[in-house]
Structure formats: structure tokens, C-alpha cells
Design a binder for these strands. Structure first.
Lengths: 214, 214
DNA sequence: GATCTTGTTCATCAGACGATCAATAAGGTA
DNA sequence: TACCTTATTGATCGTCTGATGAACAAGATC
């Protein structure tokens, strides 16, 4: 019943003296799931215990706890953005419905993740810049182009606004919030519901599409 | 520049020796806005400082910090539910669109609140039961009846599901999340966008309504 | 104004916290 | 095997934390 033997987050009994780069990554990995679970106020001693190392070791790789937290931010941030999305959104050889469906399939696959959802929420509540950067990037590179494409697809006859797209986006993200933050039951596979939402969104603007996912 | 003189959350310089009931309420009020700002890990000494009292006084009214946190939960919880909503949803003398619009107008007026939004999110992340109770109550007394009413209003020709209503709900709530948790710009008055969302939702199911807000 | 009740403060505890640094030992090199 | 580098540990510091209890004083009653 000692501190290092009761958590499954520790991959195995890690033997000592790892290469610095490897150890650093191990600490960040552990910190991601640890902070995701207990919040950014999680204590370094408990994190060290889960990793099976001493608390002082953490401060050999990070000059302060805040330094570690920012490494966690950077880690989770990078995995949630694909450079291919802007081109996907603008690919007019495919219908707007198919593009949006594929984008949100990929997007959902990346953000419906326990650790990401919770760390993004924790950092938002803490007032970190991570969230604003991320959401502004999302708006500039994805939502605003998406809005353009909807206007083009409807020959400019549609009065959709950016705020409308945020509401669609919010409805999709809310599935993950219900699941990972409120821990409420959600569909096992959110993709069908996401496709329904996109289809309803476009249909409500008179853009009818046979939106078969395949 | 001392601890008790630089916050506007303190209504005024409160003079000592208040009636217990009044003092208790003052502490809870202060705790609501304090915990909403810094999180449930906020320190009792800082809270006391903002209230202009000593830290030990808090423990004369609450046996532990957790006891205070639960008083905060109860406080914010009660203000966010109206007993009139179920009857409003079921009032078939009015169109379903008007009922949903009025419900979400009232609902938004209660939950688009800095303190509520943040405490609800903090408590959700902490795994508190508050959120599950609240969302289950919302589903049972409001969303499921609303789904029934939509089916009735469309003479049973509509395939709307509860999950569809959650997506509408999530899109609406997400406005508050953007505003108060991510601190991103949102419409000054969210009501027009909410009405648009409801209208789009119904329209996408073929329920067309002239949804003038008045 | 003397007295009593009790709301409030002051001093303090025991433990936990982030962070530091000398001591230790793992593991490569010869 | 002896040696050296350095990843890791163990002990410790100063501070802060929730919580406790004795001492104080505000304000009502007579």
C-alpha cells in the first residue's frame, strides 16, 4: 500500500537511470494524465509517486511546477490540430456537407479525449492563453473558411453567420463535455449524431445533401 | 495596500458582530464569487481577506472547507431552476417554437452568469454530484417533455431524438462557455442567436414557424 | 454604567507544499 | 575491475494550508 504501487497510470515498474530526453517525456506524459484527472493544482509529490520516481527528480527536468504545466499545455495542444484541415475545408471538388462531415469526424477523433477535454477546460478556467490561441486559430483557419464555403455552396443565398457556426461547433463539442467533464452517458460513437447535426445545419439553410458518411 | 482594502467584491467596510444568519449568508455570497474566480482550491485566508474578516471566523460557520463548498453548491444550484418551466414546455395553447424560445430566454438569463458557469464547470471537473443531479433533472423535467412536445407538434412525423435536443442545448450553453470560461467575445445579447438556433432546429425537422420573439 | 452573552479575533498547531542541494549509485568506458 | 560521469535519491528548508481553542470586545439587557 505504498505510494508507488497502486496506480495503473504507471506503465510498469520503471527502472532507473533513463536517458534525460526519455525521462522528460515520461514525466510530461504522466503529468498530462495526472493533471487531467485532478486539475492543475495537482501536487508534484503525487505525480512523482505515480511515475515511481522521487518528487525532486521532477525539478531536475523542470525549473518550476509552472514550467511543467506549460510543457503539458504544449504537449496536448500540438496533437489537436491537423495541418490538412484548411485544405480539406476548401476542397470544392467535394460537397460542403461531405467536407464538414469529414472534418468533424477527424476533429472529434482528436478532441473527444479524456485528457485533452479536461486539461483544455482546466486551463480555460485558469485563464491560460492556450485556449484563446487555440480557439482563435480554429476560427481563422477553419470556421471562417467554412462559412465562406457555405456561402459559395449556396450561391450566396444563405444568411449563415459565424455565430451560427459556433453554435454548430458548440453542439458538437458539448458531447465531449457531457462525457468527460460531467461524466454523463453519451453515444458510444458520436459520429452519427455529429453527421445528423451537420445535415440539420445545412438543411435548415436550404442546403440539402444526401450525406451518406461513406 | 493591506489584504482587506483592494477588492470590490466586498460590498462595503462591513462592521463587526453581525447576526449569525446574516454573516453566514455573507460568507456564502463571498465564497460564490471567490470560488468562481479562482476555483474550489481557493484558500480560506484569501476569502476571509476579501470579506474583511479573519480566516478563523469562517470555521465558526462551517465545520470544514468542504462544508462551505457544499453550501456554495446549494446556493448556486437553487437559483438556476424555475418550477414554472415544465408547465411552460407543456402549454399546448402556444406553438412549440414560442415555448422553446421563451424557455431558453429565461434559461439563458439564469445560466449565462459568470459565477454559475464557472462553479458548475469547476464542480463538474471535481466530480461533484451537483452536475449529474442538475443535468438529469434537466433531462427528465425539460428535455424529454420538450421532445414529446416536438413529436406532438409535428403529428409524430419527426424523428427527433433526445440526443438531437442535447445538441441544441449544447450549442446554446456553449455561448456561455465561450464567454465565461474561455473569455472569448460573444454577442452582447445572446437571445437573437438562441432564437435562430431554435428556429433552425425546428425548421430542419420541417416544423416551420414565424418565430417573432415578442 | 455594570453585567452577560456571544460574535470575532489572535495565536498557534500539524501537516503539506514547491523547491534546493549534497550524497548516492547506475551504467558506460577503459 | 577500477573509474568516471551523471541520473537519481534522501534529507531538508521556508512557507502556506485547514483547522483549533483561548482571549477579547461589541452590543443588548437591566
Amino acid at each position: 500500500m505504498d505510494a508507488a504501487s497502486n496506480r495503473e497510470a504507471v506503465p510498469e515498474v520503471d527502472r532507473r537511470r533513463l536517458p534525460p530526453q526519455e525521462r522528460r517525456q515520461q514525466i510530461v506524459d504522466g503529468a498530462v494524465s495526472f493533471f487531467a484527472e485532478v486539475g492543475l493544482d495537482g501536487k508534484t509529490r503525487e505525480l512523482a509517486g505515480r511515475l515511481g520516481v522521487t518528487q525532486s527528480l521532477i525539478f531536475k527536468y523542470f525549473v518550476s511546477k509552472q514550467d511543467l504545466v506549460e510543457a503539458v499545455y504544449e504537449r496536448v495542444y500540438l496533437e489537436r490540430i491537423s495541418p490538412h484541415w484548411p485544405a480539406l475545408i476548401r476542397d470544392r471538388s467535394r460537397s460542403i456537407g461531405k467536407r464538414m462531415s469529414e472534418f468533424y469526424r477527424d476533429y472529434g477523433g482528436r478532441i473527444f479525449d479524456h485528457d485533452w477535454m479536461r486539461i483544455f477546460m482546466f486551463s480555460g478556467l485558469a485563464g491560460a492563453q492556450l485556449n484563446k490561441r487555440y480557439l482563435n486559430h480554429l476560427r481563422l483557419t477553419l470556421l471562417e473558411p467554412m462559412l465562406d464555403e457555405i456561402h459559395v455552396a449556396s450561391s450566396g443565398e444563405v444568411d449563415a453567420t459565424l455565430e451560427d457556426l459556433w453554435s454548430l461547433h458548440g453542439g458538437i463539442v458539448y458531447i465531449g463535455i457531457r462525457q468527460h467533464i460531467y461524466q454523463m452517458p453519451t453515444p458510444d460513437d458520436p459520429q452519427p449524431e455529429i453527421d445528423r447535426m451537420i445535415q440539420r445545419f445545412l438543411r435548415s439553410f436550404g442546403i440539402e445533401e444526401a450525406c451518406a458518411p461513406s
